[in-house]
């Protein structure tokens, strides 16, 4: 399958994520959209890694392996982020009884 399809899917996912972050006020949904963007990036990394490997395997058996490695890094970071982020959201909910991010403009004052 040509690489283009992967790229289009990734862009679509990423845009959905961006628009979600921009338009939604629910912290959890924003959070999920952020994940969506991360996963779009992951998808691209995996796809390009595969492509690299296909073209460069003759010279180097490990060609393109870095992309796959990075994906794992990102997944780990994302997991850590989720744990911290969700904790914040839980605290937020406890304090304000809402997960609306527009409530969080107190730092301004």
């Amino acid at each position: 399958m040509p690489i283009n399809y992967y790229i289009f899917v990734a862009i679509a996912l990423f845009c959905i994520g961006v628009i979600g972050v921009l338009t939604r006020r629910n912290a959890i949904i924003i959070f999920m959209c952020v994940e969506l963007m991360l996963n779009a990036a992951n998808l691209l990394l995996v796809a390009f890694s595969k492509m690299h490997h296909a073209t460069g395997a003759a010279q180097n058996a490990n060609a393109g392996i870095e992309g796959q490695l990075f994906v794992f890094f990102i997944m780990v970071v994302a997991a850590a982020e989720v744990s911290v982020g969700l904790a914040i959201i839980v605290m937020l909910y406890r304090n304000t009884h809402s997960v609306d991010v527009n409530f969080l403009n107190r730092l301004k004052h």
Binding site: V21, V101, L104, K108
Partner: peptide, 14 residues
């Protein structure tokens, strides 16, 4: 610009 709205910040970032 410093509205305190997370959405605005993100929008500006993007």
């Amino acid at each position: 610009f410093q509205s305190g709205q997370v959405g605005n910040y993100v929008l500006l970032m993007i």
